[in-house]
């Protein structure tokens, strides 16, 4: 094989001299983590809210939440990202839009990606929450209301605590998806992990080392998240219920 392996490349300084290529990689990792975790928190809050709305006995509210899900599920993530990044500033009032375009490009990229990933993932979380609530026995809601709890209280104290436990496994895979989907942000120039791998190729021509390193980091994130969620599942397990002992 004619390819020259050179793993030391990660320790050599970058052209600007401020950092090593390993430093670049870790910087990319940092952006991937920040973006993904930020988007996940947003998706959880928004998604649980929407999921509850889909199950309330009000046609307008349930219908709007359903429409939200359909829109965000049926347009490719990449198209959504480009719309957040390129189109949104144009649709805002001129002064606001221009002000937005004046800000730091890195901030623009990050917030576009954050909003995009957050809203996209929220639609998926919403569907899981709806399914979780729907899988609870009907009597649970009635029991809550019969005890004199208001509808919001019934959701807060009776339905959601159980539904969220039930959907922990599918939520885990959604959480993993956020990290994977965050790579799409590289297309608008955010230097996260996968963009960093391309940059390393451009600068060092050591494509395989760069790609392997980045792939390993993604696998590592995957393993850590799965491990963490498994611990969470065990902690929140309810005796005598599915998965409980």
């Amino acid at each position: 094989m004619s390819y020259n392996w050179n793993w030391d490349i990660f320790l050599s300084p970058t052209p600007s001299g401020e950092s090593t290529y390993l430093g670049w990689l870790l910087n990319g990792l940092q952006w991937t983590l920040t973006l993904s975790l930020g988007a996940w928190i947003m998706a959880l809050v928004l998604g649980i809210g929407l999921g509850v709305l889909r199950t309330v006995p009000n046609r307008l509210l349930a219908g709007s939440a359903a429409a939200y899900v359909e829109v965000f599920r049926n347009v490719p993530l990449l198209v959504q990202l480009f719309i957040w990044y390129f189109v949104l500033p144009e649709l805002l009032p001129t002064t606001l839009g221009d002000a937005l375009k004046q800000t730091d490009p890195l901030a623009q990229q990050f917030f576009a990606a954050l909003l995009c990933l957050g809203c996209f993932t929220a639609a998926r979380v919403c569907e899981q929450v709806r399914a979780g609530i729907a899988s609870l026995p009907r009597g649970q809601r009635n029991a809550g209301l019969a005890l004199g709890l208001t509808l919001p209280q019934t959701y807060r104290y009776v339905l959601l605590p159980m539904a969220l436990r039930l959907i922990l496994p599918p939520l885990t895979s959604e959480f993993l998806n956020v990290f994977k989907n965050s790579a799409v942000a590289s297309t608008i120039g955010l230097i996260e992990l996968s963009r960093q791998s391309q940059q390393l190729v451009d600068y060092t021509a050591q494509a395989y080392e760069a790609f392997i390193a980045v792939t390993v980091l993604y696998v590592l994130i995957n393993v850590l998240v799965m491990f963490g969620m498994r611990v969470l599942e065990r902690r929140t397990r309810v005796p005598g219920y599915i998965g409980g002992k």
């Binding site: 990290f179 994977k180 790579a183 799409v184 791998s197 494509a207 790609f211 993604y218 696998v219 393993v223």
Partner: peptide, 13 residues
């Protein structure tokens, strides 16, 4: 475990 973007780049390599 790997993002599709990375997979596409891998195979393009």
């Amino acid at each position: 475990a790997v993002p599709l973007v990375m997979v596409i780049l891998w195979f393009y390599l």
